[in-house]
């Protein structure tokens, strides 16, 4: 972890050497994030409740899920570049270093421009909490659910990355490669699937991790009537998924076959 932080710091400094593009990207990120909030605001201007939840409650759910997702995306989102590293052969260079490959891929060419989204989510969450007045007996769940969400998003990216190792082995991929076929068919998941994976990453924590503990924090009944204890399951779910992800990533790396030159 320390190495990871030092690595992203070095990349940030390197990126800051081109101040124009650095500022533009950061501003761009903030503007996009601001628009998101505006959309919520507009929806609520016309309706006062959404599925039985009022504005601060929805902001709470949105903010905590958004924070989990965007922090994971900021820190580890680069992991979905693994297929580029496999293709370009730069993954060889990572394997000769005494640091985990996931950390290296995640830190590679890190830029903090995605921090805007995390900041925005944090602001939404803070505003919601200020209005909700959650007692400490329930508020302890908030950091737990955010951290669990980060772990789950990261695990899903790691799983997606691990799949890339297998996909480079898949027969149709090998064919496209050897017959010089269209590059699009070469790495299907990386080309078409990235958005899908991101979608799942967003939905899954929201549905299973953010939603259930969120109900606990808000002290609400489950509209779907699921058992009460599900609300405390998110850390266990996160830990289990993380274990699966670590295992998948390792076996992916073991299957890595480098390039033929």
């Amino acid at each position: 972890m320390r190495v990871y932080l030092l690595l992203i710091w070095t990349w940030t400094r390197a990126a800051a050497r081109y101040p124009a593009s650095f500022t533009l990207m950061t501003i761009g990120g903030c503007v996009a994030a601001g628009l998101d909030v505006a959309v919520i605001w507009i929806i609520f201007h016309n309706t006062t409740t959404l599925g039985g939840f009022d504005l601060p409650e929805v902001m709470f759910l949105y903010g905590s899920a958004g924070l989990s997702f965007s922090v994971a995306d900021l820190l580890f989102g680069n992991a979905d570049r693994i297929s580029q590293h496999i293709k370009a052969g730069t993954f060889d260079g990572m394997l000769i270093r005494p640091v985990g490959t996931f950390v290296q891929v995640a830190a590679d060419r890190f830029t903090p421009h995605r921090a805007g989204r995390a900041l925005q989510a944090a602001v939404v969450l803070a505003v919601a909490l200020a209005r909700l007045d959650v007692p400490a007996t329930r508020a302890w769940m908030i950091p737990v659910m955010v951290v669990s969400g980060i772990v789950i998003s990261t695990s899903i990216w790691a799983l997606g990355g691990a799949a890339q190792f297998l996909l480079t082995d898949a027969p149709e991929v090998a064919n496209a490669f050897t017959y010089g076929g269209a590059t699009l068919t070469q790495y299907p998941l990386s080309v078409y699937g990235a958005d899908l994976v991101r979608g799942v990453t967003y939905v899954l924590p929201l549905a299973f991790v953010n939603w259930q503990p969120g109900l606990f924090v808000l002290d609400r009944d489950d509209p779907l009537g699921l058992p009460y204890w599900l609300r405390f399951l998110s850390p266990a779910a996160a830990a289990a998924l993380a274990l699966v992800a670590v295992y998948a990533w390792r076996s992916g790396v073991r299957r890595y076959r480098s390039t033929g030159s």
Binding site: V3, T10, P98
Partner: peptide
């Protein structure tokens, strides 16, 4: 900078 990264990776 590349050397700096190498320094960090190998501590």
């Amino acid at each position: 900078d590349s050397f700096q990264l190498v320094r960090l990776l190998y501590k």
